[in-house]
């Protein structure tokens, strides 16, 4: 069981309920470990943030251990539209990525260094990031 469910919050105090209509939708983000980014987990319906957090603990805190939960009113989230907003362009973008240079750099080094030297060099280089 997730630690977040082992320690339920103090249940005292007022809990609001909507005067009319339905509950509000809250989007839930969970964090699996301290320091990690919060990741989209799903959605709950609740009267307020406090209730949403309580529901989120139950729904999303039980399948996998998580250490922290955010709830955000769904209405407060602004988003792009799939067909209207082009975020990633379709032209060649390799000039702005390290891997766009890897082959050329290797070929140029090859003209300068012996091959085994080059393998050693690349091993110690910042390779894990490319």
């Amino acid at each position: 069981m997730s630690k977040i469910r082992e320690h339920p919050p103090d249940a005292k105090g007022e809990m609001t309920s909507p005067k009319e209509g339905d509950l509000k939708a809250f989007t839930v983000f969970t964090q699996l470990q301290r320091g990690d980014p919060h990741i989209y987990a799903g959605c709950v319906d609740a009267a307020d943030a406090k209730m949403a957090l309580q529901f989120a603990r139950e729904h999303y805190g039980q399948d996998q251990p998580c250490v922290n939960i955010w709830v955000v009113p769904k209405q407060a989230i602004a988003a792009t539209e799939y067909d209207k907003d082009l975020i990633w362009r379709y032209t060649d973008q390799t000039y702005r990525l390290a891997r766009g240079y890897a082959k050329g750099v290797r070929e140029k080094w090859e003209k300068i260094r012996a091959k085994n030297d080059l393998d050693d060099y690349e091993k110690e280089d910042l390779k894990e990031m490319f």
């Binding site: 320091g35 390290a98 766009g100 240079y101 890897a102 140029k108 003209k111």
Partner: peptide, 28 residues
């Protein structure tokens, strides 16, 4: 700060590799 550094380092890897390519081009 740590999370920002990780993100920044991915982009710095491009800068470095591109710089290496430019230096190799000049020196050969």
């Amino acid at each position: 700060y740590v999370r920002t550094m990780k993100r920044i380092n991915m982009e710095e890897a491009f800068h470095f590799k591109c710089g290496e390519d430019m230096v190799l081009t000049l020196m050969s």
